[in-house]
Nucleic acid binder design. Structure first.
Lengths: 226, 226
DNA sequence: TACATTATTTGTACGACGTACAGAATTAAC
DNA sequence: GTTAATTCTGTACGTCGTACAAATAATGTA
């Protein structure tokens, strides 16, 4: 929505766009963890003075907010708006899609939990979920509560996963912690401990996804039998 | 566990203790929010130079960790270790106790989610929950999964509450459109019901607790019918 | 009592952070 | 060519976490 333009115009060759800034922020978060998204770092990444960022965003919080919004905007609604599909499958698609999108950028999760998610895309997703549950035949009141439960589950699950993962580059000194965690949470204790960090990460990913689905099914059972 | 002491001894009047530092940190968090717990602020609160804190904690993260641990150490185990009580009630007691403890200090929640919770008290709680579920007759594998689900639910719920996400609003008026009703308790309360801020807070507290219990029951239903 | 030893606290300093403000640079409209 | 609008930079302030060395005060030993 660019204003109709007044007298004078752009600036000097316009070195920046909002999306470049968000790209830089996301890259930094992905490779350096939650604390790596500094305004100065972002500016450096796009080759600009630190305060140039403030031409496009009022403050750092706005950058984060924009980033979260863009991420949420990427979720594929096509997966769960199809009214001909069984509703449980649609909920599952939504939950899995969200999880996939978010855990692809673990550094973002603490930031998005840190502040209110009231952007248009967040609200749109909320709305979709409510519609979906209404399609499932739930009374609006029950639909709202079920939506709450599902949202809590999705975000809680991701937050827990992220909190457990090593934030910065190198993996933790000992994979012992992963081992005990899996022992506590997984159905079958990993008989052979993962040798390499990559194997450990892969196993953890598999188990946590499987875990996630199991919990989701229990949730759905709870909702339907109420 | 103070070392047996060598030759010389204390310092100059020992102005500090770990607990005083944690107290100051908690007070700051309570009255100023998550960002208010700065090392300098803590030091000022106990009337000491900023770096004096580093005599007792290696860094700020350790202070936070100590604070979380102390908080978790305060949960009353007596409420749910009684094997003669019905297990569902015991789980409920644990979940509610945790929620009460944590939402009494909302500023702490993002901090505790920010890092792994691997302190002794956290692990002890985990252990208690697993024992409880074992008492309930759940197969160890199912117990572990149920524990995961419950933990996700408890922390996710609290995190969501703290993050000011859209929670289900007042239930009665069913004629309203489903989407807009959810907005009733998000970021800025529009015009509806509560007149005073105190009344609104009270109502919100009631609703979110009630919501929490409902979700918990759905969870428990899901677990038992699996 | 005097001394040496040790734990605690402070003084000072550094680098990184978010961001405010004034000006330079650049472009478009007149 | 002048003018007005926009974008970016230079510089600066206050705050943060925290490292290092010196000052302080209490203790155990002599």
């Amino acid at each position: 929505m660019p204003e109709p333009a007044k007298r004078g115009r752009p600036g000097p060759r316009r070195a920046l766009t909002e999306n470049q800034i968000l790209d830089a922020a996301l890259t930094l978060l992905d490779e350096g963890g939650t604390d790596a998204a500094s305004v100065r770092g972002i500016a450096a990444k796009v080759g600009v003075a630190p305060n140039a960022v403030y031409t496009y965003f009022p403050d750092k919080a706005a950058v984060i907010k924009g980033l979260v919004e863009r991420l949420l905007g990427e979720v594929d609604h096509g997966l769960f708006v199809d009214r001909d599909q069984p509703w449980r499958q649609r909920v599952e698609s939504l939950a899995l899609e969200l999880r996939t999108r978010l855990s692809a950028h673990p550094g973002v999760v603490p930031l998005m939990i840190g502040g209110p998610m009231d952007g248009p895309n967040a609200l749109a997703l909320n709305e979709r979920l409510l519609e979906l549950l209404a399609d499932a035949g739930l009374h609006p009141a029950d639909g709202a509560r079920a939506a709450y439960l599902l949202i809590v589950y999705v975000f809680g699950s991701i937050a827990l996963e992220v909190a457990d993962l090593p934030q910065p580059g190198p993996l933790p000194p000992e994979s012992e912690r992963i081992g005990t965690r899996l022992l506590a949470f997984s159905a079958t204790p990993p008989e052979p401990y993962p040798r390499t960090a990559a194997a450990a990460a892969e196993l953890a990913a598999y188990i946590s996804t499987e875990q996630y689905l199991w919990g989701l099914h229990r949730l759905l059972d709870g909702i339907t039998t109420s």
